[in-house]
Amino acid sequence: MLELFAQLTVNGLVSGSLFALLAISFGVILGTTRTFHFAHGIVYTAAAYGAYAFAEGLSLPLWLGVVLAVVIAVLLGVGIEVFVYQPLRRLYASPLTVLIASLGVLIIVENAIAIFFSTDAKIISGFPSRLIVLGGVAFTTLHLSTVLVSWALFFILLLYLYGTKTGKAMRGVATSPEMAEIVGIDTRRVFVGAFAIGSALAAPAAILYTLDKGATPDMGVTAVLMAAIAVIVGGVGSLPGAALGGMMIGLARNWGIWLVPSEWQSAIAFGILLLVILFRPTGLFGVKLRKAEV
């Protein structure tokens, strides 16, 4: 029993770390720009297919594939901001209008990928994954890397936001865009920066996932939903909250198997979301959730 608990905990930590990485990549964009960037899911998918195309299609080394995938993700994410969201913001479109456009972009790119790559699962095989067994608990070197990479990126992001000038500007915009404008911060450039960082973080998440489970064109929808749930559960505007939200979902999905039959596993995340909305709409660590304002 203890062994099973340990194994489930390890599983939960591995998938939770990946959710956490996804959540901060989404959260940094939502927190800074207040844009509900649903198309973040497709940036994630595109990164996975980019890595696949370079590493498998062109037989480049995996590390180079990863670098190029990050470049693709950043270009796509920033492209969506510049060519879709910015024009809409100039029209003073409502956040919901932006969200619909975002959904549209997601649908377009997802199906373009389906046409180009087909819907078969695509596998990247370059990672030397080996089994590690520690006192009855088993995991692979890939799982270990997932945890290490996710948390390393999280701390690098925090260092950036709290330790650099541009990072501080980004936090300033996140807290109050009007105030940031007054002190002379170019919010448009900060927005682009947030999209670049968020998209760049989505790429390693996508590649770690693909190394383990393969890529399909529809992988991004689930990913962005999980990221959004983690961010809302953690509290919008709080990156540590988002990361903890991701961990919570990962662990709950694995531990939950004791409480609910396993076929309900994928409902667990949504169940947590509904509970949080009903009983703690500010999120567990957040300060405010936009309610109808006076």
């Binding site: 509900f36 956040p95 919901l96 969200l99 939903l225 959004a228 749930i229 809302i232 309900w264 994928s266 409902a267 949504f270 169940g271 979301l273 509904l274 909305i277 009903l278 709409p281 959730l289 936009r290 309610k291 109808a292």
Partner: peptide
């Protein structure tokens, strides 16, 4: 009821959750 508590983007995600749960059931 949840729609009373949240509006806009959050309602979208909450409704996604509802959609997924109903589908799961």
């Amino acid at each position: 009821v949840p729609a009373l508590r949240v509006r806009g983007d959050y309602l979208v995600i909450a409704s996604f959750g509802f959609q997924m749960i109903v589908f799961g059931v």
